[in-house]
Design a protein around this nucleic acid. Sequence first.
DNA 1: GTGCACAGTGTTAGCGATAACAGGCATCTG
DNA 2: CAGATGCCTGTTATCGCTAACACTGTGCAC
Lengths: 348, 348
Amino acid sequence: MARTSSTEGGRKAPSAQGVRQASLTDVAELAGVSHMTVSRVINGTGPVRPETRARVEAAVRELDYRPNSAARTLATGKSETLGVVALDSTLYGPASTLYGIEHAAREAGYAITISSVSRPQRQSISDAVEYLRRQAVEGILVIAPHEAAGQALEFTPRDVPLVAVGAAESAPVPVVSVDQRDGARRATKHLLALGHRTVWHVAGPADWLEARAREQGWSETLEAHDIEAPMVVRGDWSPRSGYEAGRTLLAAGRPTAVFVANDQMALGMLRAFAEAGVAAPRDVHVVGFDDVPESAYYSPPLTTVRQDFIEVGRQAFELLMSRLRNEGTGTRHLITPELIVRESTGPR
Amino acid sequence: MARTSSTEGGRKAPSAQGVRQASLTDVAELAGVSHMTVSRVINGTGPVRPETRARVEAAVRELDYRPNSAARTLATGKSETLGVVALDSTLYGPASTLYGIEHAAREAGYAITISSVSRPQRQSISDAVEYLRRQAVEGILVIAPHEAAGQALEFTPRDVPLVAVGAAESAPVPVVSVDQRDGARRATKHLLALGHRTVWHVAGPADWLEARAREQGWSETLEAHDIEAPMVVRGDWSPRSGYEAGRTLLAAGRPTAVFVANDQMALGMLRAFAEAGVAAPRDVHVVGFDDVPESAYYSPPLTTVRQDFIEVGRQAFELLMSRLRNEGTGTRHLITPELIVRESTGPR
DNA sequence: GTGCACAGTGTTAGCGATAACAGGCATCTG
DNA sequence: CAGATGCCTGTTATCGCTAACACTGTGCAC
């Protein structure tokens, strides 16, 4: 089609902000039909003669009509919107999960409203949920892998479907998560299989359920091999805390094998080791957790446990949808992680 | 107050999903007033006798009333919701910006609806904007630092306020961004000041405006020193592409100074160098961009250019708000980045 | 004591959409 | 050819809220 210059531009994009959006009725008038007919054309409900349909569609284009979602929500009771309670962080895991959810939702035509919490406290999580309920969301996904989240969810109202991502097994709501304990067991076994007498552990924050599950998987594996678990060093997921943990470990007696609860801390620890002249894999074997994109390029490339966060997000969305449809399907999805072996546990 | 056990619990959290949410009218009936009085109590508009107010508040609690935002939006024309077009990625920058925005918005009582795009194409960005408009957002923030975003924004409707984050200076909308060129100039000057005869550059994807601005800052600095710019090696922000760039550089003649367009690629490059026995800072000086939390723990710790993404998010939100209030304040905010010097450009 | 201001409340009319039902006019069926 | 059965369209009520205005009563100025 040839460009019709000024007319089109001028009509479609009036610079003033005051122009009212066209409504169904406006379109109906212009097309010479009733507003219901327009509604039927827009939504594809009910039969409309092709000729009429064309007239309506022309009017829609002419007025640049856009359905008002608030009105639709009010009339139907359905908002086609989901709420997500997300962590206010750029941690790789939570951020990836968020995108997994957003993706799945968008494909299904659902909008996503986010409410983030800076600190994993019971109150703030309850607040976030409450806030979302006010936004008339149809369901809520909570990405909040801490203890506090589990507690907050206990007192969550039951009248809006809710799915937790990565929360406690004991949480009173449906849950989708990666099997952290299994991942930790794989990591620990891998290190033991390399001939180490014991495996040390740098854990995440104690109030993170995932940190605790990894710790558990580690300690129960040692136990199964009749090995007494050494002291746990705790970090906060950050590279800096991993660095400090590394120095602590060096002082505590130079481990030969360390399972670190996430890749970023492993990076910090490797750095602390390197500064002390302790090289991996020559002097120490290290396994991380998460498989962040960088971990293959650490020095040395890091053996780690891969979690498929996108899949977690997808399954969480699916589970929520099935709840919305009132299908009482499963209440807990566990996703199995995968051990990725790289140089940090390679030949010395 | 003592807990009244079963009555309360039973009424407030009926497990069935079918129970209708209480409406203003329900509350009004229970409190023995008109629905308008309830509305006034809820919103604090208009005078209400303390006694009446108390009765209404009791009824609100009793019924666990929650205002219906769709109805409110329909009646007032204000949705108190902003739309954000975000990149479907876990890149540190975009993710951080998103959280900066969310934070600022939440404090101001605005909800955030996200629409993410997987690939920075003009069409997908237009679609995302269109999608948000349908959600009745009051304003839109576009985090999309690519060429395509700039193009898409040109054809964006003018009737919903829109602010771009990190887009082209030439974009036809208000923009908030970090001064990439300035950052690149600082990085390049820093390397030149260390006595290098030239500085190589590993650039980001050509369709990212930020990549181009950094490249420009680099090349114009060389030019100002009468140095001919060496060949540009291009990556895609990923550590893997940085690794490949590193190998390319090694083959192309072993540079002594490299400015890499982001930290992750710098990591990959350092890895490629290390594998070839080229150590930083002994044999080569490297500067990155972004200052991701990990960069202080790379081997060696990376000199880089810090961008305050949270501040970017905050200012973008502010700018959008001022647009909403129809204050014609500034149209472009530039935030100055900061050079962080670490070992990767340290003494040899 | 009349009038006026104002606190406190109620009534009515939308906002823009869908739901539910009610036709008019063909076309088929018997 | 009457009646039934669709297609296509229109009318009306309704979702839950706020805006706008109307109404009562009290307290105070004059």
